[in-house]
């Protein structure tokens, strides 16, 4: 059976750490990093890579458009 795998890339410097993507992700892939970017924001980062299906929900809801989504069918 084909399994869909996804991955996201966050533009860390442009992320403002609002966390809207964290609650929008149905697979709990994203968390806010304990580290900060140069503006002091705790940026979003994917922690649970394997669960990502590339559904684009995080990117669709991101107010700053900092998330790119990749998807393949395995």
């Amino acid at each position: 059976m084909a399994k869909v795998r996804g991955a996201i890339v966050v533009d860390i410097e442009k992320c403002k750490g609002c966390g809207v993507c964290v609650v929008a992700c149905p697979a709990s892939v994203i968390e806010l990093s304990p580290n900060v970017n140069s503006k002091g924001y705790h940026y979003a980062e994917p922690v649970n890579h394997d669960a990502c299906t590339g559904c684009t929900n995080c990117a669709v809801v991101c107010p700053d458009g900092v998330i790119s989504v990749y998807r393949i069918k395995n």
């Binding site: 403002k16 809207v20 590339g54 107010p63 700053d64 458009g65 998330i67 990749y70």
Partner: peptide, 29 residues
């Protein structure tokens, strides 16, 4: 997975590369 041919969503080119002046989480962006 992260290869150009697998890209399904990225910021549109009609938006500039400037960081918006809106507060974090604002619906304006």
């Amino acid at each position: 997975i992260i290869k150009p041919e697998n890209l399904v969503y990225a910021k549109t080119g009609v938006m500039t590369d400037n960081i918006t002046s809106y507060c974090p989480g604002c619906g304006h962006g």
